[in-house]
Write a protein that binds this DNA or RNA. Sequence first.
DNA 1: TCTGGGGTCCTAGGACCC
DNA 2: TCTGGGGTCCTAGGACCC
Length: 396
Amino acid sequence: MSDLSWNAPILHVDMDAFYASVATRERPDLADVPVIVGGGSRGVVLSANYLARQYGVRSALPMTRARRLCPSAVVIAPDFETYLSVSASVLENFRRVTPLVEVVSLDEAFLDVRGSTRRLGSPAAIADQLRAVIHDEQGITCSVGLAASVSVAKLASRRAKPDGVVVVPPAQVTAFLHPLDVGELWGVGEKTQTMLHRLGLVTVGDVAHIPVRTLQRAVGHHLGTQLHHLAWGNDRRVIVPRAGPLEPERSMGADETFTRDTDDREVIVRELLRLTRRVASRMRAAGVAGRTVTIRIRFADFTTITRSRTLSEATDVTVEIYRTATQLYDALGLQRARLRLVGVRVEGLVPRASVQRQLVLGEPEHGWAEADRAVDRATRRFGAAAVGPASLLGSS
DNA sequence: TCTGGGGTCCTAGGACCC
DNA sequence: TCTGGGGTCCTAGGACCC
């Protein structure tokens, strides 16, 4: 009955410890063992099963700390191909419920089920069906939050974990929200949480009851407005059906942490070239070009700077992006600074077809675009190791 | 051997233009 | 012989999300 009063019942479906669950679903030997999915020596935890979490292991924790907290954990390298395929199967399960699916990431999506209740039953019944189907077909569990808005549904699913459902009827939204810590709100990370706590704003209810202007002064105009609305459950966001992270992007980039910090210009510049090739070929595959080239430098002490330059016209040409990146790097005039990470990003992406190249006759540049396409073709046929500048031979 | 890699959005100051 | 005021673009930094 109460379901009928819901303007738009929203489900937020969130896989439980997704990477770890997928990694262990056919490994009964790991069922009762702490499991961590994570990268190499300088990496972070990508996913941890609930046994590992009992030791304090969390996503984004440095692997070194995670191993210290839980020496008995089995550490597994991520296998994104498998995650992608499981994720695609789960998405099919969603689409059988409703076409109004907004994919957030590989392991998370919002479903607007207002059009599905006649066929499938109440929103709560739909949540149960989905969890059963995903468990039976994919061998993993998920949690579901059900509410009348996107933001509350998301908070509800978090409270449902693991392997549960939490329903927040419209009349109970503020009673549900106000006791929560401000850090639970979308847009409040570690920094903002700390700042709000220092101001004596600990719960969502605290934030709800101070004047918007005060909030805006504390955290900025935009975020202040947003938090005020979220604290009262005012969330007009609607589900935008989309396939997820494969949307037309505004920027593309790549960065990589060195195995060891380095101050060697040769090594750094070679890395800039490797990253640029990766980014540029992704851009060409996506049919986009961009005008602003940004490099990112992270020093050994973790301080991070960016330097960018906007070109007169958009490009997807490896050599142009690379030249800009190295010029930006050299302009820093670093001497003995040890770098932990470098990155290259191209912003202001537009469809390549919309770029009118002002080709100057005799300009030596205009052969490079064709060279890139030849490299792309060869890479598709023979693999990435087959083609590359001499400075990268043997390194890829 | 503390702290990945892919992104998005906001803020703020200066340049520049009308 | 002080100050305008928008709007837009560019750059840099920072916070956040998954």
